[in-house]
């Protein structure tokens, strides 16, 4: 048995619930920091940005699972659902901070969603991810059937780049960090499409 097989076997024995617990810690930590002055003098925006970035990081981690298995053999598939749901948790908090702490006014909120492209793009990404979160249970997979479930969950290939685009569009100037995130997302998608083409024509 190779080292990698041993690692995969060990991973297969691990429970997945710690991913939820540990994964949501950064969100609570950020909220705690914001409430106690640890995020600087403008905590609302800082918290908004931090939660959004964490959501994107977990989405990217989820997106990396399949290429990682294909290219290195490391099998993290069992943890992918937890990564996705933790990302969705951060994303929901990101949205909640924007709605409840930042804008707090339905007029402003609607105006922003309709008039401001980066918010439209961000909301679209969130809306695309909602059905995926809603169908993340085993029961939902059974009910939809694996074929339809998989097709539905391909929405992630659209939602995550939109999230990266939202990050690029909201910053003042062409800043490096958001571009790196977007490039990472596009890179992971490219790997996936390359490998699926590879399967069609062996």
């Amino acid at each position: 048995m190779t080292g990698l097989q041993r690692v995969n076997l060990a991973l297969a024995r691990l429970p997945t619930w710690p991913v939820y617990v540990v994964g949501l810690l950064p969100a609570f930590w950020a909220i705690w920091l914001g409430a106690t002055g640890g995020l600087g003098v403008e905590p609302i925006n800082a918290l908004e940005n931090r939660l959004g970035l964490l959501a994107l990081q977990f989405l990217i981690a989820g997106l990396a699972v399949t290429p990682l298995r294909r290219w290195t053999g490391l099998n993290l598939i069992r943890f992918r659902r937890a990564l996705g749901l933790v990302a969705m948790g951060h994303l929901t908090l990101h949205l909640a901070v924007w709605l409840l702490l930042d804008l707090r006014d339905w007029g402003l909120i609607w105006a922003d969603i309709l008039k401001r492209p980066y918010i439209t793009v961000g909301m679209l990404a969130f809306a695309l991810l909602l059905p995926l979160a809603a169908t993340s249970s085993n029961r939902a997979i059974r009910r939809l059937g694996p074929q339809r479930w998989r097709r539905l969950h391909r929405l992630v290939y659209l939602a995550v780049p939109l999230g990266g685009l939202h990050f690029v569009m909201q910053s003042k100037g062409w800043q490096m960090e958001p571009l790196v995130y977007l490039a990472a997302i596009l890179g992971l998608l490219a790997l996936r499409f390359r490998s699926s083409r590879g399967r069609v024509a062996p």
Binding site: L108, D112, R116
Partner: peptide, 11 residues
């Protein structure tokens, strides 16, 4: 173009 200027947050 990317946000409203009608309100502001006092630091």
């Amino acid at each position: 173009p990317r946000w409203s200027q009608a309100t502001e947050r006092r630091i």
